[in-house]
Deep mutational scan, measured.
Amino acid sequence: CHSECLGNCSQPDDPTKCVACRNFYLDGRCVETCPPPYYHFQDWRCVNFSFCQDLHHKCKNSRRQGCHQYVIHNNKCIPECPSGYTMNSSNLLCTPCLGPCPKVCHLLEGEKTIDSVTSAQELRGCTVINGSLIINIRGGNNLAAELEANLGLIEEISGYLKIRRSYALVSLSFFRKLRLIRGETLEIGNYSFYALDNQNLRQLWDWSKHNLTITQGKLFFHYNPKLCLSEIHKMEEVSGTKGRQERNDIALKTNGDQASCENELLKFSYIRTSFDKILLRWEPYWPPDFRDLLGFMLFYKEAPYQNVTEFDGQDACGSNSWTVVDIDPPLRSNDPKSQNHPGWLMRGLKPWTQYAIFVKTLVTFSDERRTYGAKSDIIYVQTDATNPSVPLDPISVSNSSSQIILKWKPPSDPNGNITHYLVFWERQAEDSELFELDYCLKGLKLPSRTWSPPFESEDSQKHNQSEYEDSAGECCSCPKTDSQILKELEESSFRKTFEDYLHNVVFVPRKT
């Protein structure tokens, strides 16, 4: 048989008469490798580009789960590009990614509803959504962080984005990388972005840091009482949809009607710091009717980097990364020049730590249904340095008659930039024990000054392991946590139920 035959053949030295091919099969003959313009397919066939392209389009058009959109890589027609490569849609070739590779997620039936953290986790790592997304989240724990972890990498949506009755959302900033909504599939009414009845939605994105392009379709905003109209108009300008909307697409009466839409800028007039305090004062603000001013709200939190936005980490279910302080308005003076500047002394802060701070007014709604208010920009203030805590785990070892090696770990709280350490030492008198000992005694162990690591005695271990207080009263049991108490109650309830079950099964009433 021919060298490319495997198993047997019907005619000697003829690659077209093989029972099976050793390498690849091409047009009725066995070959060692697939010549151009053919590609290896499933490690035994040679196919042309049209064959591989037909497989790709067949799966793409069917949208069946589990099928493969075949691509070409290293002269092979394979189910998908290997790690580190992405497909070129024009020629199906796998090309190296520039940075992290995109991950295209194809949605069944063309859309997916995100109504819980669990459903959001199914899209973790996706960068391109081939379909439409509907966000409908009523509640949950730590929602802002969970949504950002699972949806934060999405850069492109081919269909539309719909935010509907998501009472738990305060902001859409968890879509931190969303840059493009194509609108290839539109919501009824030709809408590519749809926001309806979101009672706590206050911000779409921080438009000073976020760009969003909507290729096709219109915007729809109705019944978002805490979303200011200025935020919607800003989205029109940034996304390129200005002029597409009709009169009733953006409701003037049901958007922002319960919001404090600040239209003035508060400026800080005085800032002073110490290692654990920050004193702030800002310019006074009074609405047209000074009785509408209820006070100020001061927001602050630790910020290692200057990239904080107002609604980071917030949701309507209680999660809030900001510390909020309510401040009463100052006494009002008739003389504008003698107006008191409101302020606040922030206490209990960490030394040498940068804080993000902003302040906003708290006002009631005027009778004319106009909203007044003022808010400052987010500023960054760093507390002063102070003395560091003591170095940890000092170790001293003498390696000769004239040297001592000293080692330690950095302090747990540096409280500033540590530039150097101060080492103090003092000579001590020799131990009298060394002169009084009889060095001729056998088995004498000389006193040693070398360091030995501390260890816990058996008594201390027994005390720590004991669940009861000892007789001397030195140790006591740790208080039980809520989960331990709940577990004990469940076990007790189970024992009672099981005992009742045994009584009912074992003891049967005697027939009379």
Rank of each mutant, 00 (worst) to 15 (best):
I157F: 02
N387S: 05
S132R: 02
V325R: 09
Y167I: 14
L345M: 05
F174K: 00
E302I: 06
S132L: 00
L151I: 04
D328H: 04
T273Y: 06
I271Y: 06
K226P: 02
V324I: 04
T215V: 11
L151R: 00
F268Q: 00
T254A: 08
L229G: 04
N307H: 12
S239N: 02
I188W: 03
L279P: 00
L279Q: 06
A120H: 10
Q354V: 04
P388F: 06
C126F: 01
A251Q: 13
V381H: 02
S402D: 10
L172P: 02
L229D: 04
L293G: 05
R370P: 13
R281C: 15
A251S: 08
R370K: 10
L201M: 02
Q382T: 10
L107E: 04
P329T: 12
A144P: 09
L293I: 03
V381L: 14
R347F: 09
S338H: 08
E246S: 08
P329S: 06
V170L: 12
L108R: 12
Q245R: 10
P336I: 04
N387M: 09
Y194F: 13
W286R: 08
G343T: 15
T371M: 03
L294S: 13
V397M: 12
F174D: 00
A149R: 04
E246R: 12
N130A: 12
M346E: 02
I404V: 14
E302S: 08
E237W: 13
L161M: 07
M297K: 13
L201R: 00
A385R: 14
L227E: 00
Q199P: 07
T254V: 04
N190A: 14
S230L: 04
R332N: 06
S158H: 05
Q339I: 12
P394D: 05
Q258M: 10
L151F: 06
H222W: 10
F299M: 10
L186G: 10
E368P: 03
D292Q: 15
A145W: 03
E155G: 09
K218V: 13
K177N: 15
A303K: 05
K253C: 11
D292T: 06
F290L: 06
L186Y: 04
I114E: 00
R369E: 06
G139V: 15
V390D: 03
M346T: 03
L392S: 14
K407T: 15
A251Y: 10
K112P: 02
T361G: 12
I232L: 11
L345G: 05
D384G: 15
D115I: 03
G189K: 02
G313V: 12
P391N: 03
I214R: 05
K375T: 15
S333H: 10
C126P: 01
P342E: 06
L201H: 00
G256A: 05
G110Y: 12
E264G: 06
Y194L: 09
E109Q: 15
N399K: 14
L252A: 12
L331G: 15
L180W: 14
I154A: 11
S269P: 01
G140R: 10
Y380I: 02
S158I: 13
L153S: 12
D393F: 15
F290A: 09
D384Q: 02
L279Y: 14
N136W: 07
M346A: 05
Y305P: 09
A316V: 10
G110E: 15
K209E: 05
A149I: 03
P288K: 05
L293H: 06
P330F: 12
W352K: 15
G217V: 00
Q258W: 14
I405G: 11
L108N: 14
S400E: 15
L362V: 04
V128Q: 01
Q245H: 04
H222Q: 13
E156L: 05
L280R: 00
S389T: 15
V238K: 14
A374D: 01
T383F: 00
L227N: 00
C126T: 01
Y191L: 04
V170A: 11
E187R: 06
S269R: 11
E148K: 09
T383G: 00
I114H: 01
D197R: 15
L204A: 13
A149S: 04
S274P: 00
Y167K: 14
S158N: 06
S269C: 15
E302A: 15
Q199H: 04
L151A: 04
L180C: 12
S171Q: 10
H106C: 09
T254Y: 12
R164H: 15
T254Q: 15
A259V: 13
L265Q: 12
E187S: 09
L186V: 05
Q339T: 07
F275L: 11
T254F: 06
Y167M: 15
N334F: 03
G313N: 14
S171P: 00
P329H: 03
S260G: 10
F193T: 02
D377G: 05
M297T: 02
R369W: 10
E111V: 10
E184I: 09
Y285T: 04
L280M: 13
N224P: 00
W408T: 00
C105W: 01
N198P: 00
E368M: 09
W344G: 15
D249E: 15
K360Q: 02
S319G: 08
Q354S: 04
L331K: 11
Q258C: 08
K350W: 02
A251F: 09
V397P: 15
L252Q: 12
S239W: 03
S274R: 09
V170P: 07
S396K: 09
S338V: 14
D312C: 10
P351M: 04
Y300M: 12
T113Y: 12
L178M: 06
P391D: 09
M297D: 04
H341R: 10
H341L: 07
F299E: 11
V238R: 15
D249G: 09
S396P: 15
E237T: 12
Y270S: 08
T185S: 12
E302K: 09
Q245L: 06
V325T: 15
R138H: 15
L172T: 12
I134R: 09
R281F: 15
L280T: 09
K103V: 10
P288Q: 09
A149Y: 07
F296C: 02
H341Y: 09
K226G: 11
D335S: 14
R332V: 14
H106A: 03
G240S: 01
T364N: 15
T118W: 08
W352D: 15
N320K: 06
Y380P: 00
Y167N: 13
H341D: 09
D315I: 05
V390M: 08
E237A: 08
N136H: 10
L298P: 00
T127P: 04
S116G: 15
L294M: 14
P388L: 14
Q403P: 00
L153C: 13
T323W: 15
D328N: 11
N399D: 15
E264H: 11
N224R: 00
R247Y: 06
G295N: 11
F221N: 00
G256F: 05
E148W: 15
F365L: 09
N255R: 03
